[in-house]
Design a protein around this nucleic acid. Sequence first.
DNA 1: CCGCCCATACATGTATACATGATGCCCATA
DNA 2: TATGGGCATCATGTATACATGTATGGGCGG
Lengths: 239, 239
Amino acid sequence: MVDPQRLHGHILMRTRSQDVTDTLRGWILNGTLAAGDRLEEIPLATRLGVSRTPVRSALTALSNEGLVDYQPKRGYMVRQFDASEVFAAYEVRAAIEGLACRLAAANGVPADVEGKLRSCLAQGDRVLSKGRLEAADYEPYQLMNITFHNTIIELSGNSWVDRFVSQTHAVPFVSDRIILWHDYPVILRSHDDHHRITNALITGQGARAEDLMREHVYFAGLFLKENFHMIRQNPQWAA
Amino acid sequence: MVDPQRLHGHILMRTRSQDVTDTLRGWILNGTLAAGDRLEEIPLATRLGVSRTPVRSALTALSNEGLVDYQPKRGYMVRQFDASEVFAAYEVRAAIEGLACRLAAANGVPADVEGKLRSCLAQGDRVLSKGRLEAADYEPYQLMNITFHNTIIELSGNSWVDRFVSQTHAVPFVSDRIILWHDYPVILRSHDDHHRITNALITGQGARAEDLMREHVYFAGLFLKENFHMIRQNPQWAA
DNA sequence: CCGCCCATACATGTATACATGATGCCCATA
DNA sequence: TATGGGCATCATGTATACATGTATGGGCGG
């Protein structure tokens, strides 16, 4: 991926609007701002030490991302996502990431990408070989999982796949960054999917890779749905 | 669908920012603003008779929609979509609308929705029964086609499907609004797909409906790709 | 006592002034 | 002549003042 900071030899500026957007998105995703909270421009501007302008810009952006609801002259509100909407996002993700696998298999897997995938597999194997999960393993495993999925998406060469999957990630609870740690066998099986998907990709079995990925993502959504209420109440159980 | 103009008994205001956004989007989609054109705030503001503020707001929104490229301190540019990117959008649309069919079939088709679909079929049959296409038929056929697809998307009950398909439509040339009229047999076959899809939906054949819709949309993309250069040069051939 | 209406307070929408970084020209120098 | 640095210009980023629609609360009528 091209470094988005550099282009034409210039170091692209980072504007306050972008910073504020990222900050507010973070606050929404990590729960600092709860669903239903009103987002008032002046208090936010004061809190962030900027004027209303970048705040308004950020709210517009977040509204376009779908994270906040907007009504003219009535302001912005942190959007409420219920379980069915979150699950619906996984359904779509399953279809799109399945497509990504099919395309990736058709494109063929270059040696360096194969190495990257195998490295993800090895890392997951290492973590899971202990027969249980420890807190220290959460973050590395998350990163591995993100890398694995992103690698395939990138390999698909379809920018829309990337764009839409990114959008589904920008929703509380819908993310590879969310993993439920309390059920070791589920994670074990999930990582076994990674093995089979990699195998299918490398051997050019596009349809098989697609089916595997669809189920892989779909089940993650199903599992999340079943545990949704629990997670809402105890966000620390997910990471 | 709920009337977005009304909520809580209020008639929602329309802001200049929204008007400007819609105007500029229109100018981009209909070619008034060509790919690669720089979008400068002050000239646009002058041209539209507003200040820079709503223009900036609109440009931010269009940037989030992906219609314009943005680089901090360097401004906005109408995005260039090449043939491969346009085709990539159809690939994704095919996967998502296929999913919509599967979900719709699983949900079951209420009588009124079935009536709507059958009415679309009948209208298409009527237009095509003449054995050729006349200019006067373009717009009704387009509207029928849009209605048909939207009905299924709505029936899927998955808001993300709706959202993502809408996003792919907001790209020059990727739209049910674009139909290539010069090849009657292709349209005839396309409408035959509509018949089979409806049949599959009503009889609850989710997998069949999905496969049919995937191919239906995929082929539209393929056909567009093959004729892309022609259309670029003669936009009037598409409608 | 309840409900409606209007006035006032306030948040958001818009315009504009000011700050800052990008672009391009000019000229000095190799 | 080609190249590179510095300065002027201008578009964009931000702050703030002003305009306008919304919502709350108190008073009036039923």
